[in-house]
């Protein structure tokens, strides 16, 4: 089980959280987006082998969303950051 660093509550068990997939996905301009751009927004998510910026919600705790870097090979967590704030650098 992952031990997830909630930026509001501190580290808690994975079962208190729900996963929200890739972070930093921005809504396209509805009046001008092409089918390809909609497709990218709806279906394409990064799927890196290594560090991944992703969203979690602490649903059984503070119920707040946050973003965090996590390594998809080691499951190690990197820095967390709040939605719509500047993304910290990808950990080395």
């Amino acid at each position: 089980m992952l031990h997830i660093p909630c930026p509001y509550c501190g580290p808690r068990d994975e079962t208190e959280f729900h996963y929200g997939a890739g972070a930093n996905i921005f809504y396209p301009e509805p009046s001008s987006a092409t089918d390809e751009e909609w497709s990218k927004f709806v279906f394409i998510r990064e799927n890196p082998k290594g560090w991944h910026a992703e969203r979690w919600v602490h649903s059984a705790g503070c119920r707040r969303w946050f973003n965090v870097w996590r390594n998809t090979i080691t499951h190690e967590f990197g820095p967390t950051y709040k939605p719509f704030t500047e993304q910290p650098k990808r950990p080395a």
């Binding site: 994975e14 996963y19 998809t72 499951h75």
Partner: peptide, 13 residues
């Protein structure tokens, strides 16, 4: 398991 991974293991829960 809920999250993306390449680690070929998951949580015991």
């Amino acid at each position: 398991d809920a999250f993306n991974s390449y680690a070929q293991r998951g949580g015991f829960h």
